[in-house]
Design a protein around this nucleic acid. Sequence first.
DNA 1: AATACAACCGGACCGTGGTCCGTTTAGTCT
DNA 2: AGACTAAACGGACCACGGTCCGGTTGTATT
Lengths: 198, 198
Amino acid sequence: MRPDMTPAAAAERSDAARNRERLLLAARDLIEEGGVAALTMDRLAERAGVGKGTVFRRFGSRAGLMLTLLDDSEAAFQARFLFGPPPLGPGAPPLDRLLAFGAERIAYVVEYGDLVLAAGHAARGRFEVPAVALWNRHVEMLLREAGFRSPEPWLMAGSLTATLDPERLLHLIRQHGVTTERLAVSWRDLVTRVVMAT
Amino acid sequence: MRPDMTPAAAAERSDAARNRERLLLAARDLIEEGGVAALTMDRLAERAGVGKGTVFRRFGSRAGLMLTLLDDSEAAFQARFLFGPPPLGPGAPPLDRLLAFGAERIAYVVEYGDLVLAAGHAARGRFEVPAVALWNRHVEMLLREAGFRSPEPWLMAGSLTATLDPERLLHLIRQHGVTTERLAVSWRDLVTRVVMAT
DNA sequence: AATACAACCGGACCGTGGTCCGTTTAGTCT
DNA sequence: AGACTAAACGGACCACGGTCCGGTTGTATT
């Protein structure tokens, strides 16, 4: 192993790194050209000038690729509600943070639409994704801070985040013309009722 | 058109009816033998002694087939919360009916597990299913009867039913060992808070 | 520079859900 | 009975996601 590399990265061969770059680039190209639906694993491999096996070696599955594509924005989102400025980040009253969390999540889903949808179509189900667990813990924490008392705050947190399911949100927006504002208001209504009733 | 047939049925040819019987029979056989995963459209066609095109003509898609398989039990469920005895059916206080609805839905999802999951994997999304719209309206009505006042009772009803998403419920049960009792309690907690806070 | 090996690569291959269209057949009309 | 037609049929065909494994290549070691 090279002495100058971080132990966390744990050795990625140069050709592997180059191919990953190529693949991500080609993936964004394809999506830009024809939407998420146009991103086929075969086409991606061909476009990147790489074998199909390589694609699956890198990303595991189509959903995994989508997750990787969302990696940056997802990390940014997490950073904002964990360490960012109020009312989303720490410093604001917990109820305000909860409301901001919902609103931001809705905006995120709207922005990345089909990409989020495709990322959710994982074989092992959309609840195994680490990010989902993180949101749950975050909401659970905020509930506790807001004075929420109940035998199962974790289940309640899960119920609340289930409300933000991307497929549901996008269905309401695209098929029923519901605006993001109304969705945010609905989230506010739900959360305030749940918290207030303590 | 034959004069003695009901206009609603609108003419189904005898060979079509016979093949549908065969297909449903074969489908249940395959599931009994190897679970829902063993039910492949190819295998189903072969087992039923029918062409593949016929299968898709009948059911449209795999999800459509699953929906048909669930048809009887789903209709029974609907009949129970629409016309059945209290507390699920009419006659009981609306809050009790809401709690019963959640508990019964959880039990239903547990009972039919993978079948419900497969039925949800429709191409057009799991929110287009007519039954889902019916549940929403039902919950909305009960909310109103329970004195729930809000600008958007329909969205609130959708949020509540989103909580009962089969994939979520089964994930909690199978991956986290959550009992159906705890799920029912969680539903009760959520719904009572939402209704009480009026 | 030569060696050795783990990691990586490619693309043939598979099973799946879904479509297409030429052929067959049930029901009706004369 | 015979002809006619709309409906139903069947299975070859397609695109896709995903797997497998023999060959290749980067990297560390000597």
